[in-house]
Design a protein around this nucleic acid. Structure first.
Lengths: 352, 352
DNA sequence: ACGGCGGGTGAGAGCGCTCTCACCTTCTTC
DNA sequence: GAAGAAGGTGAGAGCGCTCTCACCCGCCGT
């Protein structure tokens, strides 16, 4: 590859000239090479290597109507997203899957209502072929927006009101939150605990609701003692405060299921401050199994979800969606992508 | 804004027609509107709103030679990047600054040597206007690559061999690692500690070397007792192991300066396992002041760097670089951007 | 031997935009 | 009042690519 320190980058024209073919043929050779004689193809390949040619994506995109890029949209009011290793992990899975498909990853965070308009316009502007969106709250306008823009979208975490009459049911990747929560609470019951409290996430997110439902399932009652339920907002400080509230309302509790590791850490802290020993006096279970769990004191029993894999699956799902679209959508519903729910598995450590 | 469910998006042509002007004028009005009569500009604006027009970035980029996007390249072998909140924070700062300048953020991770070629080609292909790169190791090929491609680049953390004959000295944003480390160790000395160990990061990164230098500064000796120095690789497990090694080599130590909070957490764990009380027997200081520090037990005295701000500064620096480039580079060195070193400040908590 | 067929190839249009340049106002100036 | 300046506007080229279509060639069938 001849390096071009500062001269203009070679164009298809140059490649074609060097290979002694027309632009059209060079283009064909470069894009898969169907309908080009092997000899010619070879000649073009050599010219490409010789010149260090890289197609101009803008020009290509202009005519093909595909950008080869997808947006990862994160709703940022919850600053949780950036400080939580959760998102980083998922991003890595996504990044890997996309890199494998030669698709670019555009990261955009929505900071507040003001941004919605900007992002909305931007998403419908055809700057990306599709979008990946995360753990939205119930009233988040993003899904409606993506739908209106006709933008293929995959959600991380089941969006609210899924299937509520929306023409194409939303595609998502989620953990079996309810099942995981059930495992956690059953484990606590199995350890002989009888007064099991729960620290929930914000209940306008499906994951939080599902985990609470799992708690109810395991307890076998639709209406558990309300004194045993507190909202921790999925943050460490929230967990700390929620634990304090629980201790005040139900001092006799002997176990806590915190719906995230971060909240479990907060709870641990409060328990320590109140002189309760873990797990002797109070057993604690978390959810997620990210770094905070392993590094907690004592190490946290928790429900593991394979976050990186979920990211990978999200990207894959979107990629499949895009492929289908390209190949003429409705060639039978045989390969129609469906939401994916991954398994959640209890990991027992020393906090129970 | 008239919504266009599925029809083709309106083009500049359509806007011009509706406003009763030529494409050229419409374009001018949209891009700042210099040299367009207010009346006309207004009319164009209305047409834009009416049609819900959004410029086609591919077309624009094709002619302007600017993509309005910058790449954030992260070298991934160190999986630390994605699990460490550090990076997430920095990314948020970057993301904010870029959004403010209507610049897109392309995230790409380099997973291994195999990717170098791909990324290299890609970066020189003009898909982005500039790049942001992170905490590279000494032998990382990325900087050379960016330089060869003539790609404006800002580094997070001072790159190695900075200023070693490279024509344009590399631009970077870094914390005052050495000064921060100095503060940390002096604080330990001030607390009466005399056998102060250090757990370093990988010494092929400038940040790790600088922090070790700060340790030496504070101790006032260029050759501290080698038994008090161990490499923790900037990971929690590394910190755990390094602490064990230090305890074995110098059981009489009474303080540890861990060059990152994550490593400090690991060290805390080992100390606890060995029955050493913190801070009574051994005082511990970390570096970074991210979540792991505040949530450690006991909460960690540490050196704070404003990571989000650093991200913001990186983006700003790059943006300025790009502006200068656009405006014809050499209009005097007055405004030539220079590397930025941000302050590091000791935060005292309960581990010392 | 001639029409037809089909795979390989080239000419050229056009994707949506910006930018140059020429033109056409409307003021200014002596 | 004529010449020039200054600012607003439109026509049209062209950014680098893909894709349609017509063409050319060598092969078959009759």
């Amino acid at each position: 590859m001849r390096s071009q320190p500062n001269g203009p980058r070679p164009t298809l024209e140059a490649v074609a000239a060097l290979a002694g073919v027309s632009r059209a043929t060079a283009s064909r050779a470069i894009n898969g090479g169907a309908g080009v004689r092997p000899v010619v193809r070879e000649r073009v390949d050599r010219a490409v290597a010789e010149l260090g040619y890289v197609p101009n994506s803008a020009a290509r995109c202009l005519v093909t109507r595909r950008t080869g890029a997808v947006a990862v949209v994160i709703a940022e009011p919850e600053s949780r997203v950036f400080s939580d290793p959760f998102f980083g992990r998922q991003l890595r899975g996504i990044s890997r899957a996309l890199a494998g498909a030669d698709t670019q990853l555009l990261l955009m965070s929505v900071e507040g209502p003001a941004d919605h308009d900007r992002i909305g316009r931007w998403l419908s502007a055809g700057h990306v072929d599709g979008a990946l969106m995360f753990s939205l709250h119930r009233d988040d306008p993003l899904p409606a927006l993506a739908e209106r823009a006709g933008l293929p979208t995959v959600y991380g975490g089941r969006p609210d009101r899924s299937g509520a009459g929306r023409t194409p049911p939303p595609l998502y990747v989620d953990t079996d939150n309810r099942g995981g929560a059930r495992q956690a609470v059953r484990h606590l019951l199995g350890r002989g605990r009888r007064r099991i409290a729960v620290i929930t996430g914000p209940l306008d997110q499906t994951s939080a609701v599902d985990r609470l439902d799992g708690y109810r399932d395991a307890l076998g009652t639709a209406e558990p003692d309300p004194r045993l339920i507190a909202d921790g907002g999925f943050t460490a400080h929230g967990g700390e405060r929620a634990m304090a509230a629980l201790l005040a309302a139900a001092p006799e509790l002997d176990a806590v299921f915190a719906c995230s590791d971060l909240m479990a850490n907060g709870a641990l802290r409060t328990l320590r401050a109140h002189g309760r020993r873990v797990p002797d006096d109070v057993a604690v279970v978390g959810f997620d199994d990210l770094e905070p769990a392993a590094w907690a004191d004592p190490p946290l029993t928790t429900v593991r979800q394979d976050v990186e894999e979920m990211g990978r699956l999200m990207a894959q799902l979107l990629l499949r969606l895009l492929d289908r679209e390209k190949a003429g959508a409705a060639d039978g519903p045989d390969a129609a992508p469906a939401p994916i729910v991954t398994e959640a598995r209890l990991v027992v450590r020393e906090s129970t």
